[in-house]
Amino acid sequence: MGTLLETQNVCKYFGGLKAVENVDMKVEKGDIFGIIGPNGAGKTTFFNICSGFYAPTHGKIIFNNNDISGVSPDKIARLGMARTFQNIQLFKYMSVLDNVKTGFHIKTESTMTDAILHTNRYKKDKEYVNEKSIEVLKKVGLSKYAETKAGNLAYGIQRKVEIARALALDPTIILLDEPAAGMNPNETDSLREFIKQLNEDGYTIVVIEHDMKFVMRSCNQILVLSFGQKICEGTPEIVKADEQVHQAYFGKGIIAGKGLQ
């Protein structure tokens, strides 16, 4: 299938703090890729580097054969990378439909002059956005919430709205930052199904997660970060058996060794 997103020796330092150091990652096209690690391991920072919110101190990020290290987030979004946030960043005073409509920004082109004169391009864009946003909502199963204000929705549904908005960008890869955080087991299960579904629809997915079960069951490849460094990468089986991963999560010792079984 080929590599879609690749990082080479990516580092990010905040002053003396090495938040991410020398991380290599290869995400294959059509994969579900998991990133795990203890709290403060630099997972979100790593995500922020990949999506352009931080520029890496060293290293290279290659997305779809383009070097995107240090490129601004809006350009990366245009190249086909969408992301969600750990603390949901929805336009909480807008309706769900409007949230999704805003996501179509890079798919439309009408300018201010078009808007003032109501040119054909403007009308076409309007139609396109209206049609497509309803389509996206249907796909995600949020049609009944279309007119509800996003901030008034339950937590789990807000997560879905955020993903729906990301889908509006028509991305090839979606980065999900702790999508299951704060969800109960039922919601988590339905989210897993949902992510699987997205993957089958052709989206490549990278997901940060704390929930081991979630990651082990749904991801094909897993990267483990600890204190900013990569300590393991591979299939769930390899990660489960890895000594260093055990130590990072449970520390050393006899009892701790039994942790992941």
């Binding site: 987030p73 809006d74 979004a77 992301r83 929805l90 807008m94 920004h105 890079i106 990301a166 960008l169």
Partner: peptide, 13 residues
């Protein structure tokens, strides 16, 4: 409403 979200959606702030 949310500058961070706008940036992630590819809007040139």
């Amino acid at each position: 409403e949310d500058e961070l979200a706008a940036r992630s959606l590819g809007i040139e702030i």
